[in-house]
Amino acid sequence: MEGTSPTPPAPSPGDIFWTFFRISAVTIGGGYAMVPVIGKEVTAKRWMEEKEFYDLFALAQSFPGPIALNTALIVGRKMAGMAGFCLALAGILVPPFVSVLVVALLLDGFGNLAPVRGFLGGAAAVIPGLVGALLWRMTRTRTWTVWRIACTLCAAAAVIAFRSWAIPLFFASVLVALAGEVRS
């Protein structure tokens, strides 16, 4: 079935590590900004077809954890087994770890200066707006049924009312929602 496309070159371990390292080091804005970049890279290097990549991305969303990390791990393993998995893990984890620590150290030194406080205050002030916009987009793009509306409202009310139980309540609501999906 791969008769027409030439055999893709097998990625070297260093290549896998550096690809994910580079993407993780330069992409700001979280997972949903990183995934399209990973997709572009792996298809440009002809490690896999675009459709295969987005199938793996869909699979990655079934697991907990940062979506960019999950996608990288599944792609890495697909390409080079356990070695690819570990290389992708290291490549994604190291750059943010180092850069975040550098920023934290800088803040220890300069964090109390008025302009720095002003910048951080402004940057933090947009958080409710960004979260609200995410909620808006998630609810707009979902296909709603009466069951899904009822389930989601109950789940939201429950986690807001009992925030210290958020994790168990999350899984309980997913199970109830899943039971409803299976029945319909």
Partner: peptide, 25 residues
């Protein structure tokens, strides 16, 4: 189906995140 069910829990948690940040706004 699993991903659809996960959306229910995820939207609820994002709503919770929003709720906890609203007093700041």
């Amino acid at each position: 189906m699993l991903q659809e069910a996960l959306k229910t829990g995820t939207i609820a948690l994002v709503a919770m995140t929003l709720w906890t940040f609203l007093p700041a706004a």
